[in-house]
Every structure is written in structure tokens, then in C-alpha cells.
Computed example of a mutant assay.
Amino acid sequence: MAFVILGLIFIVLKLLSIGPVASWSWWWVLLPLALAFIWWEIIDPMFGISKKRAMGDMADRQQARRQKYRESLGLGGGERRKK
């Protein structure tokens, strides 16, 4: 997401001819957007970074839901004892 924001800032600065970005080539201005594309289309699916984060979040929500149901049934708030 940072690459996209940086790319958009560079585009605005280039179009308004502000600062040193005005003298840069369009290739340098659009480079952050290309890096964002590479990240989302190649690196993230290859290593499953977003999928692992989403699965962890889902497991946390599931654990909180189970804890809430146990408390509402009066089974105590503690974890289950292992024998």
C-alpha cells in the first residue's frame, strides 16, 4: 500500500511540476506503482503472506467466539484442562 501512495504522490508532484520530481523521468515516477504490482501479483501469492495473516485473524476470531459461548453457558472462562 505504501508503494501505491508514494506513486500517487510522485504523479501529483510531476503533474504540478513541484520539487525535484518535476525533472524526473516518468519511468522513475511510475516505478513505485510497478513495485506495488509486482508485490501483489508475484511475491504475495508466492509466499502466501496475506493468506497466513487472514488465517491467523480467523483463528483469533474463532477462539474469541468459543470463549464467549463457554462463558455464556456458564462453563467458566478458563481454558480446558489437559489430562
Rank of each mutant, 00 (worst) to 15 (best):
K52W: 07
M46E: 07
K52A: 14
D57M: 13
W39Y: 13
M55Q: 13
L31D: 02
R66F: 11
R53I: 13
A36H: 07
Q67G: 07
L35P: 02
S50D: 13
P45S: 04
F37P: 01
E41W: 14
M55P: 00
Q67H: 13
K51I: 05
G48Q: 07
A64G: 00
W40G: 06
Q67W: 08
R53F: 09
Q62T: 11
R61K: 12
A34F: 15
Q67C: 01
R66D: 15
G56A: 11
A36K: 03
W40Y: 15
Q67L: 15
G56H: 05
R65W: 13
E41D: 12
P45Y: 02
K51L: 10
I42M: 05
W40D: 10
G48S: 06
F47D: 09
G48A: 10
F47T: 09
R66L: 14
M58D: 08
I42T: 06
I43R: 02
F47E: 07
A36S: 09
D44A: 02
R66M: 13
F47P: 01
M55W: 01
R61M: 13
W39F: 04
M46Q: 06
A36N: 02
K52F: 07
I49N: 04
I49F: 13
M58Q: 06
G48H: 07
A36F: 12
E41M: 12
K51M: 08
F37T: 11
